[in-house]
Amino acid sequence: MPETSTIGTNLKRIRRERAMSQEGLAERAGLSRDTVAKLEQGRRQGERTTTLMKLATALDVDLTELTGRRERLGGDRGDASVLALRDALLAPSLLPGLAGLDVDDDGAPTPPHELRAAVGRGWDLYWAGDFGSLTAALPGLIGETRLAHRTLGAAVAASLAQAYQLAACLLVHFGKLDLAALSAERAVTAAAEGDDEWQWATTHGTYAWVLLHQARLEEAERVAVLAAARIEPSFSAPEAHLAVWGNLLMTALAPAAAAGRDPSDYIDSAAAAARRIGHRVDAYQTAFGPATVRMQAVHAWATLKDPGHALAEARHVRPGELRGISYSRHLLDVAQVHVDARQPRAAETRLAEARATSRVWFRHQAIARSLVAEVREITTRPSPTIRSLVGELGLD
């Protein structure tokens, strides 16, 4: 998370604007008054995302209003690229009857196969954690795909849906959750115009993931579960079908765990589908397989502060079994388990491994900031590694 002083200042300001006492806020959020007081005083380091979600919900604000999260792309890119992505999503030409506002509305539309390839390259950048290149390219990709959709319709609906999904996922990392929700909603709408129900279901998984980051836990779980129920496969279904269904269950698992509920039913059902497949399947720009289920199980048990279950699952996850930054995110969950077990050296090793995959991606992970701050606090003499991580994230 961002610096505790920022969170404390924002928390106190918003609480007072709501005319709430610390006791009243604590009761509404299901927390102790001591937690609220220490956060406001900057005395609690590396506060959990789930705690901040409860406070944001109790205050009726977006989580980013507490954390003060901002883009941290570095000097090679800037806010201009993010603003260009915003403008692409909020283009006036999307209004009914105003299509003529598109300045690039002349010429033949890009062929569907070229759009599929371009969207696929965008997803490759995402999974590689190359957010700078992706942010620069995505506004043009969305505009080009949207113009083709205007002419070709359902033939490019899947590409348009995946372009919007890509924007939604990227914007979550930037903390632009309202824009992410808008983009995810447009992905669902675009997919509904096509004839691929699995693509439609995948976009609902993205929408549910955005809701999770907005701390709308009940809605996030419900969207994922309802989409999974609609496409529930038979045991002999194609691998891609099982993969989409399994991923929806894994999406439902996270808000369930964040709400403090046992995720075993989701894990068991998804694990059965993963065993049926037996290996990783890449489908609809997502991946699913036995390692995916174990990765999400680690996340759930880490959220529930059950290190025994979490580490038992983590022992079976190997590099290369997960796609790109998914493994890096898994390493952050393992680091969380080690922090909870008061094993700072093991935690910093996992954090350093996660950073090695993509420094840009790493700088956008709120959990990375939280964990590095917590390791620094519980370490008597911070190692060169943890000092490097502190500098990387701007925590010094």
Score class of each variant (00 low, 15 high):
3 E>M: 08
10 N>C: 02
14 I>K: 00
16 R>V: 00
18 R>A: 01
19 A>Q: 14
20 M>A: 03
29 A>R: 04
33 R>A: 02
36 V>K: 01
44 R>K: 11
44 R>D: 07
46 G>Q: 01
46 G>L: 00
46 G>W: 01
47 E>R: 02
48 R>F: 00
48 R>W: 00
51 T>Q: 00
54 K>W: 04
59 L>E: 00
60 D>R: 09
64 T>E: 03
72 R>C: 09
74 G>C: 08
83 L>C: 12
88 A>L: 00
89 L>E: 02
94 L>C: 11
98 L>F: 07
103 V>Y: 11
110 T>C: 06
112 P>M: 07
114 E>Y: 06
114 E>W: 01
117 A>C: 08
122 G>R: 10
123 W>M: 12
133 S>Q: 13
134 L>Q: 12
144 E>P: 09
144 E>D: 15
151 T>C: 08
153 G>T: 01
153 G>Q: 07
156 V>K: 05
156 V>C: 03
158 A>W: 10
158 A>C: 05
161 A>P: 03
161 A>L: 03
162 Q>I: 05
164 Y>E: 14
166 L>D: 09
167 A>S: 08
168 A>P: 06
169 C>T: 15
176 K>L: 09
177 L>F: 04
177 L>T: 09
181 A>K: 15
186 R>A: 11
188 V>T: 04
188 V>K: 12
191 A>D: 01
204 H>W: 05
205 G>W: 04
209 W>N: 15
213 H>M: 09
214 Q>A: 05
214 Q>L: 10
215 A>E: 00
217 L>W: 03
217 L>T: 03
234 S>Y: 06
235 F>M: 15
235 F>C: 15
238 P>T: 06
240 A>I: 11
245 W>F: 13
246 G>H: 03
249 L>R: 10
249 L>T: 05
251 T>I: 07
265 D>Q: 15
267 I>P: 01
268 D>Y: 03
273 A>M: 03
273 A>C: 11
276 R>Q: 10
276 R>W: 00
287 A>F: 04
300 A>H: 06
307 P>T: 06
308 G>D: 10
310 A>K: 03
316 H>F: 09
319 P>N: 09
319 P>E: 12
319 P>F: 02
321 E>C: 01
322 L>V: 02
323 R>K: 10
323 R>M: 08
324 G>R: 10
326 S>T: 10
326 S>F: 05
327 Y>F: 06
334 V>W: 00
339 V>S: 08
345 R>V: 14
346 A>N: 14
347 A>H: 04
358 S>N: 13
360 V>S: 07
366 A>E: 10
367 I>F: 03
369 R>L: 09
370 S>R: 04
370 S>L: 02
374 E>Q: 12
378 I>H: 07
381 R>M: 13
383 S>W: 01
386 I>A: 11
390 V>D: 14
391 G>T: 08
392 E>C: 12
394 G>R: 01
395 L>F: 01
